[in-house]
Design a binder for these strands. Structure first.
Lengths: 100, 100
DNA sequence: ACGCCATATACACTTGCGCTTATATACGCA
DNA sequence: TGCGTATATAAGCGCAAGTGTATATGGCGT
């Protein structure tokens, strides 16, 4: 599984958004996804770790998860060359906002 | 299928990169993916069209495919808030843009 | 109209994902 | 040492993705 497939899953994107605010224990993340069971969340966290989107640090019997920049940057590097396709569109929008 | 899943497939990313250079007919794209059959490529193009990454224009018996900005921009919009994790100077820029 | 070319769809098959239930591992505390 | 808590792994299942073969659709030229 690569970083693109990892990010394609909505629950994993939710986990990423939570970890972007601050670190969380696995249990907190399980509580934040009430539709999923604990093993399901644990598996998602495993995948996020394997693709380098997340890192784990043990804290007693808990595991603290934190976002890692590297993985998301790989997606950003991929999308960067295509950014020119809507840059001019955005420029036009800003122009419009400034003129009104 | 949403735009994230669409982009998660390597062959579809390849198609996107080809269409970023210029428009292509379906046949040209089939020729650019020698490991896949014509129906397989046709199906990938269908998916890219359904998620708004690509648009089709008929030209006689051929179909000309072109990249559409909207879909990729949605991915870019999603990744933007996380960009501060690896480029702190960009966070300052975003702050500046928000405040003006 | 007929055959040819370009492209799309139907169908069947395999494979891997995401899920749940059940179980294992491991730490903390009395 | 024994128990409860926190987290991970195992096993099994349903389902959808991706693919190939076969076929349909539809424009083009003669």
């Amino acid at each position: 599984m690569d970083v693109f497939e990892a990010v394609a899953e909505p629950n994993r994107r939710h986990l990423i958004s939570l970890l972007a605010e601050r670190e969380h224990t696995a249990g907190e993340l399980v509580g934040s996804l009430p539709t999923l069971t604990q093993p399901a969340v644990s598996r998602h966290l495993r995948i996020l770790r394997e693709v380098g989107l997340v890192e784990v640090r043990p804290d007693g019997q808990r595991r603290i998860y934190a976002l890692k920049p590297d993985g998301l940057q790989r997606i950003d590097d991929w999308i960067t060359p295509y950014r020119r396709f809507w840059r001019h569109h955005l420029a036009a929008l800003e122009q419009h906002l400034e003129n009104r």
